[in-house]
């Protein structure tokens, strides 16, 4: 088991594995998302208080979860990259950042379109929306720092450190925003006041979460493959990869 791990920690042997996994998770993502959308948009009954507007949560909740989860994953790979100076883990962190930012952006966007019919406003400075906004800024900071440093190895380590500092701060940010929100808001308008969910709604939510999760894995692995080729372009195995690709 341990041997396997180390074998795949080198870009050469990880590249084909990432390709196979990416395709597999892509198929899973398509399957789960289609099923989840069918359950969420067609099968699940209309909510008594929110009408059909509540169907947005089948997109909003999974993307919001993924935005947070991907930041944790990015911090995990960053810690490995900084601690053991492993190239592949830094590449994984680099590949995760754009998808994490996209998930945060989609969570905010769908949250706004859910908030308008539910709260009567697109943006309400709800605690969760506000912390997701700050999470998006953290993602954009990591991406901007990466693109501002020319030397990839230096960028790896700088971004890893920034991600870790951000990861220490994320719980503090969530706590402080929650605190601020309860202090300033008399009437509680938050997702905790969401409707009591029917069983099909929970099912739809779980299936959509599986779909979004699979999508993120598939996209991240596809991106890490490009990053590997960009970084290792001088090496012999990339040359033979190109030769094989040309023959195809």
């Amino acid at each position: 088991m341990i041997v396997n791990w180390f074998r795949y920690s080198s870009p050469v042997s990880f590249y084909p594995l990432a390709g196979r996994l990416s395709r597999a998770f892509g198929v899973l993502a398509a399957g789960f998302t289609i099923a989840g959308l069918y359950i969420g948009l067609v099968v699940a009954p209309t909510d008594a208080t929110q009408g059909d507007a509540y169907r947005i949560i089948f997109l909003h909740v999974p993307t919001a979860w993924m935005a947070m989860l991907i930041y944790l994953a990015m911090a995990f790979w960053s810690a490995l990259a900084l601690g053991f100076n492993t190239r592949l883990s830094a590449m994984m962190a680099q590949a995760l950042a754009p998808t994490g930012a996209l998930m945060a952006a989609l969570a905010l966007w769908s949250g706004a379109f859910w908030g308008r019919p539910t709260w009567g406003t697109y943006w309400a400075w709800d605690a969760r929306m506000t912390s997701t906004l700050i999470l998006l800024f953290l993602y954009l900071g990591v991406i901007a720092l990466r693109s501002a440093i020319d030397d990839p190895r230096r960028a790896d380590r700088a971004c890893a450190l920034l991600s870790l500092v951000g990861a220490v701060n994320v719980p503090i940010i969530y706590f402080s925003v929650q605190w601020w929100n309860t202090l300033h808001q008399g009437s509680s308008i938050s997702f905790t006041s969401a409707p009591k969910m029917a069983m099909t709604m929970v099912e739809g939510l779980l299936v959509m979460t599986a779909g979004v999760w699979s999508y993120c894995i598939a996209v991240t692995l596809a991106r890490v493959r490009s990053i590997i080729v960009e970084r290792e372009r001088g090496s012999g195995w990339v040359a033979s990869l190109i030769a094989r690709q040309g023959a195809r």
Partner: peptide, 24 residues
Amino acid sequence: AMGGYAWYVWMSYGAAAVAVIVEI
């Protein structure tokens, strides 16, 4: 029509669809 909430529902899911296509 989404029970009158078409604008909100389809703006959310439409944006997600566009984002997925653009990312791929």
